[in-house]
Nucleic acid binder design. Structure first.
Lengths: 308, 308
DNA sequence: TTGTAAGCGTTATCAG
DNA sequence: CTGATAACGCTTACAA
């Protein structure tokens, strides 16, 4: 009878009878049994730091949509930037026999351990690369940081402070390094500020501004750091030009509206899903691919531009 | 050998040998086989309108955490407020034999069809109730709306406009009705505005303000409506007092900071998970429970208060 | 064309 | 206490 349900080309006489019975009895094929038998669960795992963070929630949204169109479900797992919890989530992936995963890796991960733990499971890294041999979909972090830095330099700033949390996270690290490189190349003074958590970032920013009074512009390196900058500037009442990151929703409703470096989360997600299914569908292991998407600058007013 | 892995009380001589082999061979129990055999998948489904929407992404975050602590995975499904897509997602739940679901139902759902389709599957409704016999965790929508309306009335407003999208969504409907009831009871004039989508809401708000020039305060009924109000007020340059909904992150960084009616998403999620596991663990079907959490008013300045 | 049986990886049961 | 066996629901391969 599985014959009848699956095969559509040939129309047997019995087909109608069975299909009718299926309808009447409310029969639902047991995907668990299909998975055990067929070796594919038709589920993918999405392992992200957290989904409260508009960047990741947007990615998840797009991934879920793309996966659903292909008949796949999404198992959502978060690690909170904690390598230990990430290891647990990877164990869940293995035990659940998920067909593949999209992973934003936690800092301080045991990459060697992961490589052996994940051997045989198709993986696509998102936002942060893993190791040679794993597909990755990333922002061009350095291009993004350079573009923002140069734009601020173009406004005449000589001492700029970039702001982030947890510089051990790859994407932030890249952005910081490029910021500093671009500043040095221009003969300007880079200041780099990082806090342990976003909660304490506004305070840390205020203290840093007192310590480096010659700083004339700010460059937060994530959407949440951008939020903290706005908070801190509000608290001090002392305004400084800045460029935000990730085009968060609040960018257009604060005063002045925030010039931002935007990542296209829809494209990130689309490419990640595409690569993952390509990988899962492949017989022979194919060469790993890395896709680095360019960021674009959305000019508003917070950088000093007069709206364009 | 499953004996050895599960049983811990008795220590057999062989145990060590097998446990060692487990370690060496990197054996991972096959959850798919366990599920087929045991009849429990140790996965729950979360069916939400969308996770780009801070309210839902926060709920998902908390649910995932609570579920993980109980050894359960979360399958994330979204319907985009579309009953048809919701029906497809429910089919996924049934086929995947998920142990239970937390559901924010789409408007215009075929409740009778759902009731039969979901018979036997533990369900907890979140934010919007389903039908008699299904657990629900809700905000006290009417209390929330009354509180906000009364606060604005207390500031002396006589004509207030509430703003939302899609009034066929239960939670919005409740809030609208209570808003109008509270206004009428106070002898004030309620204006109710709703747009088809959030995208067109700012425009619709501007036109409504021209049409009803005597409106002196606004009451958006969701976090996204609150966002639209801020956008619209920015665009017109004409400021009106208002109270926001859901305490979105931007509430504190816009000028003036927004007085809001807050829902505790962590509590909503915690209760939903608790009820769901209670339901899944129960032998005999127990009576359905509805938990209605109170909202609280966070006084900032957008309502006309001088910060407290 | 249709029926039957094996096997996916577990666990529970029943003999030994 | 241990070892073999059936069953969970499905698909596929093979036999009738």
């Amino acid at each position: 009878m599985s014959r009848v349900i699956s095969r559509r080309a040939i129309e047997v006489l019995a087909e109608n009878r069975i299909l009718q019975a299926v309808e009447e009895l409310g029969y639902e094929p047991n995907l668990v049994a299909q998975s055990l038998r067929g070796g594919r669960t038709h589920s993918i795992g999405v392992i992200f730091p957290q989904i409260t963070n508009a960047f990741f929630s947007q990615c998840v949204q797009h991934i879920e949509k793309e996966a659903a169109e292909r008949g796949y479900s999404v198992v959502l797992l978060t690690h909170g930037e904690d390598a230990k919890r990430q290891a647990q989530q990877l164990a869940v992936v293995r035990r659940s026999r998920l067909d593949g995963i999209i992973l934003t890796v936690a800092p301080h991960s045991d990459l060697e351990g992961m490589e052996s733990a994940l051997s045989g499971i198709p993986v696509v890294a998102l936002d942060r690369p893993l190791w040679k041999g794993v597909d990755a979909v990333l922002l061009q972090h350095r291009q993004a940081a350079a573009m923002a830095t140069e734009h601020l330099l173009g406004h005449g700033h000589k001492e700029i402070m970039c702001i982030t949390v947890n510089p051990s996270i790859y994407s932030f690290c890249e952005r910081i390094e490029q910021f500093e490189a671009t500043m040095h190349a221009a003969g300007a003074i880079p200041r780099t500020l990082s806090a342990k958590s976003y909660a304490e970032l506004p305070d840390v920013i205020q203290k840093a501004l007192e310590r480096w009074p010659n700083v004339t512009a700010l460059l937060p390196l994530s959407n949440m750091a951008t939020f903290a900058v706005v908070e801190a500037l509000r608290a001090t009442g002392h305004y400084l030009p800045f460029i935000g990151f990730d085009d968060p929703d609040f960018a257009t409703i604060v005063d002045p509206p925030i010039t931002v470096v935007r990542q296209r989360t829809d494209q990130l997600a689309r490419h990640a899903v595409r690569l993952l299914f390509q990988h899962m569908g492949a017989e022979a292991p194919r060469a790993a691919e890395t896709i680095a998407l360019p960021a674009d600058l959305i000019r508003r007013k917070s950088c000093g531009c007069h709206e364009g």
